[in-house]
Design a protein around this nucleic acid. Structure first.
Length: 157
DNA sequence: GCCAACGTTGGC
DNA sequence: GCCAACGTTGGC
């Protein structure tokens, strides 16, 4: 099993929004960056876990944990001319933007703010903390996963 | 709101 | 294929 971090601007889709979705599942749509797409398409497996991270918030923070429930899905917004994510260079026969479905696993008892991550021993190499890193889908190592989970108030594991 | 870092586009 | 211009992300 692998670990990930998914960024979302809470203005467009927040942890609270996910809690309110019936079934607490959603297709992770709207990613329009090839590196992120490749991780969604080629890196993720059903059962993988990911941190749900709020960017564009003061402070940015890790909100909770989600699980990958389906892989290899064509992002439906790429075919919708009314969507801001519409891509007229993509076709249903050969979709350009592939993503996953995720389901809420559990909220962190204490969401972890970015400054705390920056100060935490063992997270020095975390992709999120690299200068200029804007990648919205990121791999997280098992060691980093455990440290962040602990900071978020999760017991043991 | 600012702006550094980054990705993409398009002229050549 | 280079690279300047442009648009976007995201922390502050």
């Amino acid at each position: 099993m692998k670990y990930w971090l998914l960024k979302s601007d809470p203005e467009s889709f927040s942890w609270r929004d996910l809690e309110k979705v019936p079934g607490k599942k959603t297709i992770w749509d709207g990613v329009r960056n090839y590196q992120a797409r490749n991780l969604l398409r080629d890196g993720m497996s059903v059962g993988d876990l990911a941190f749900f991270y709020h960017s564009q918030e003061e402070p940015p923070r890790v909100m909770g944990i989600v699980r990958v429930t389906k892989t290899g899905l064509a992002d439906p917004t790429q075919f919708d001319p009314k969507s801001k994510y519409y891509d007229d260079g993509s076709s249903p026969g050969d979709p350009r933007w592939i993503t996953v479905e995720i389901a809420l696993e559990r909220a962190l008892p204490e969401p972890v703010p970015l400054p705390v991550l920056r100060g935490a021993p063992g997270l020095e190499e975390m992709v999120l903390l690299r200068r200029g890193s804007r990648l919205s889908v990121q791999p997280v190592t098992e060691k980093e996963w455990k440290i962040v989970s602990k900071l978020g108030g999760m017991k043991g594991r």
